[in-house]
């Protein structure tokens, strides 16, 4: 039951961000939610952090998204839950494989990024909530970039 709820949570997080329904996304997050995008750089031999936001700063970013000059078109996040482990503290660690595509206004689609979601999930009043999401990107060449979290 909980596995299915968490699978649905991951799917809803993708759908709400795809549709830019930011309030819906934020409703999936627990207090103290931490969002990161990371990637390993062979050029410098280090793991890099490209975004590290608490809930307040994430809210600020999402509120500002419509004011930014940004990539036009539709992003689609395709996440498949691969592993789910219950931790000693009763919370869950979930790893999902991730592909993100972008379709431009002219209808042309290209692969934007691949990677994984490493999520920490807790249950609040019977509902799963994201405590932390680490987006581990394989793709490091992302064109000009994006103002949208993955």
């Amino acid at each position: 039951m909980k596995a299915e709820q968490i699978r649905t949570l991951v799917a809803k997080s993708c759908l709400s961000m795809d549709d830019e329904k930011f309030a819906d996304y934020l409703a999936l997050c627990a207090d103290g939610f931490q969002y990161r995008i990371r990637s390993f750089s062979p050029e410098i031999g280090k793991e890099m952090t490209w975004l590290d936001l608490g809930l307040d700063e994430l809210k600020g970013l999402l509120e500002a998204v419509p004011k930014h000059v940004r990539m036009q078109g539709q992003m689609r996040r395709h996440a498949t839950l691969y592993t789910l482990d219950e931790d000693a503290d009763g919370r869950f660690s979930a790893v999902s494989s991730l592909i993100v595509s972008h379709t431009a206004l002219n209808g042309e689609t290209h692969l934007f990024a691949t990677g994984q979601f490493h999520d920490r999930v807790t249950f609040v009043e019977g509902e799963p909530r994201l405590l932390a999401r680490d987006v581990m990107l394989d793709t490091r060449v992302l064109g000009p970039g994006s103002h949208m979290p993955i």
Partner: peptide
């Protein structure tokens, strides 16, 4: 270092608030 990286990423990097816009401008 974490503070420095956070400050860097507020403007720059592929998820920064200004650097992607510069790319869209010049394209």
């Amino acid at each position: 270092r974490a503070e420095r990286i956070r400050n860097h990423n507020q403007y720059w990097g592929p998820f920064g608030r200004t650097q992607p816009e510069d790319g869209f401008f010049i394209e």
